[in-house]
């Protein structure tokens, strides 16, 4: 009997971990990645909260397992645009032609970062000193320059939480949940890089729900002297010499607050990347520029199978904002559901 085959769409952390778990269960795995390199957002990150582990270490260990496994075939630069049911299997469509066929499919298309320039009042894309949290990771990775003078060893830096999250103006009512702890992590990295700097976090709530998060927040306050100010920034405006003046309501003081900064970092949230349109025998994998919805799994809370249709499973942050440990665990759980399906248990 030939081995059963699984196709995975997306080679970010969810896709890579699904591939490893499924290959270990004995399946042939075809792993498709739209971009020219695997890793998703993980490939662009510097270090990971809360342990400050280099992101490259986690990606390398996942990639080593993927590349070493003879049953995993990774193809990059392949954009799967839809699926078609053919008997008991799924055909994978790439621009109107069949790219491959599999007994089951895992959709692991991940998320997109919120486009910071949409919050116009913060001036991203207009003032060079205003950058996104992802751009700050690129700076930490030495792929980008600091937006202030090299001689400035005591910069004043602001971090704005909830940019594009918990914001009906952006159409995103949800909390992206990883940005608060990312802000704390980045604030600590900034203080390590510039010990004489002043770092201010502008938050609405500090949502420190994960293992070790609250402890890291405590450490940021006590050991790194990061300032936390409760209040959402109303605007950022230029203040001469490339600096930025920000205004906010200091809601603990009940007074307006102003501050001039050398760099303003916008903690961008997660938005949907691929929104599947499910019909009877076909699934269209649509990419929306602005208003895609995360993939909804009915009954997910009570632990129903993580699938959209028989044999079409969904793993990772394409279902909604998630942290890396959650994504990796979800990929393992999805692999188990998938095995039960292919062995006739589910």
């Amino acid at each position: 009997m030939t081995k059963q085959k699984v196709a995975i769409i997306g080679a970010g952390p969810a896709g890579l971990q699904s591939a490893v778990s499924l290959a270990e269960l004995g399946y042939e795995v075809d792993l498709y990645e739209k971009k020219s390199r695997p890793g998703g957002h993980l490939a662009e990150w510097h270090v990971l909260f809360p342990d400050m582990q280099p992101a490259g270490e986690l990606l390398d260990s996942l990639m080593q397992k993927v590349l070493a496994h003879p049953q995993i075939r990774l193809e990059t630069g392949v954009n799967i645009s839809g699926l078609e049911r053919a008997g008991n299997s799924w055909q994978l469509i790439q621009s109107d032609s069949v790219r491959g066929e599999a007994d089951a499919v895992v959709l692991a298309s991940g998320f997109k970062l919120f486009e910071a320039s949409k919050k116009e009042e913060y001036g991203h894309g207009i003032y060079p000193a205003v950058i996104s949290s992802a751009e700050l990771e690129a700076i930490f990775n030495r792929e980008k320059e600091w937006p202030f003078e090299k001689t400035n060893k005591s910069p004043k830096i602001g971090l704005v939480h909830c940019v594009g999250s918990r914001d009906a103006k952006c159409g995103n009512l949800y909390c992206s949940k990883a940005c608060c702890i990312t802000a704390v992590k980045q604030a600590i990295e900034l203080k390590k890089t510039f010990p004489a700097s002043e770092v201010y976090c502008f938050y609405m709530d500090m949502r420190m729900f994960g293992l070790g998060y609250e402890e890291l927040y405590h450490k940021a306050q006590l050991d790194y002297k990061v300032h936390f100010i409760r209040g959402r920034l109303s605007e950022a405006s230029p203040s001469g010499a490339g600096r930025i003046q920000v205004k906010a309501e200091d809601t603990l003081m009940g007074r307006p607050l102003k501050l001039t900064l050398d760099m303003l970092v916008l903690m961008v949230g997660m938005t949907a990347s691929v929104s599947p349109e499910v019909k009877e025998n076909t699934v269209e994998l649509k990419e929306y520029a602005n208003k895609g919805e995360f993939v909804k799994i009915p009954g997910a809370v009570i632990g129903a199978a993580q699938w959209l249709k028989p044999g079409l499973f969904v793993a990772g942050a394409c279902k909604g904002p998630a942290t890396l440990p959650e994504v990796l665990n979800d990929a393992r759980a999805t692999a188990l559901d998938l095995r039960n399906y292919l062995s006739g248990v589910l």
């Binding site: 405590h218 306050q221 006590l222 007074r255 607050l257 102003k258």
Partner: peptide
Amino acid sequence: RSVNLDSEMPAELESLYQKEPSLRACI
């Protein structure tokens, strides 16, 4: 009545934190 964080912090503030560092942990 606005709070201007551009103005220099009083020197006594640092000595207050030195006398009682746990002040920084307040949420």
